[in-house]
Simulated scan of single mutants.
Amino acid sequence: MNSNPDRWKQRLQHLIKAQQRLERACSQESYNELELAGLVQTFEFSFDLTWKTLKDLLEFEGFDVASPRSVFRTTLEAKHLSSEQCEIMLEALIKRNLLFHTYDEANVLEAQALILESFSPVIGQVTRYLEEKCAQGERREQ
């Protein structure tokens, strides 16, 4: 269990910055080879920060979770994610292996489509939800 109750809020600040960077990367009209690799890498660290922030929140709330898969399933049970968001994040977890093969043009084009159409929007939704949850907690503390 997490000994620092503010750990999830601290990690959230990093997630917010990563998600903003991902949003900027997704807003391009077209990508050259290096930009596509950067898009994939930006997605990867945004995704990692998303599940780790959710893990810290769940631990703060008393849940015992370890793997990304258990984090997403538990966030659904705890009503932090909708079933659609949970499914997309689990798909992103599975597809991460595909994303490591950015040297293969077919893989990188599939990765680009998934990131732009599914994964980035859900990371944005989760980030905004966590920001609101953090703000609500701070209002209650005042």
Rank of each mutant, 00 (worst) to 15 (best):
F100N: 12
F60W: 13
R24G: 15
V126K: 00
H14C: 09
Q13T: 06
F72T: 00
P121D: 02
L109S: 13
E77G: 08
N97V: 07
R140C: 10
T42F: 09
A37E: 14
L12A: 03
R140Y: 08
A106Y: 10
K55T: 07
L99F: 14
M89N: 00
L109E: 13
S30H: 08
V71M: 00
Q85V: 01
D104P: 10
M89C: 06
L49F: 09
E59M: 13
R69N: 08
Q125P: 02
L130T: 01
E61L: 15
F72G: 00
S118C: 15
M89S: 01
E141I: 03
H14Q: 11
Q41P: 13
H14D: 11
E84Q: 15
L34G: 10
R139A: 07
V108L: 13
V126D: 00
S70R: 04
R128T: 07
Q28T: 07
Q142D: 12
Q20S: 13
K133E: 01
Y129A: 09
F60V: 08
N2H: 11
I123E: 01
I123S: 04
A18W: 03
Q20T: 12
F72Y: 09
T127S: 04
V40K: 08
M89L: 15
F43S: 03
V65H: 04
E117K: 13
P68Q: 01
N97C: 06
Q112G: 11
Y129E: 05
T50H: 05
E138C: 03
M89P: 02
S83F: 07
Q28H: 12
T53D: 04
S27T: 08
E132Y: 03
S46H: 02
E131Q: 06
K17R: 12
E132P: 00
T127W: 00
E91R: 11
C26Y: 02
D6M: 05
K17Y: 12
V108Q: 09
Y103P: 09
S3N: 12
A37N: 14
F43N: 09
Y31A: 02
K95G: 11
I16E: 14
S70N: 06
D56L: 10
E29R: 15
E141H: 07
L114G: 07
T102I: 11
L39W: 09
L116A: 05
N2Y: 09
V65P: 04
Q136A: 14
T50C: 09
A92M: 03
R69K: 14
T74H: 01
N2I: 14
A66Q: 15
K17Q: 11
C86P: 05
D64K: 14
Q136G: 04
A78R: 12
V40Q: 04
Q13A: 14
C86L: 04
E141K: 12
L22G: 07
N2M: 14
P5C: 10
L90S: 01
Q41S: 12
F60S: 11
E23L: 14
A92R: 06
L34A: 14
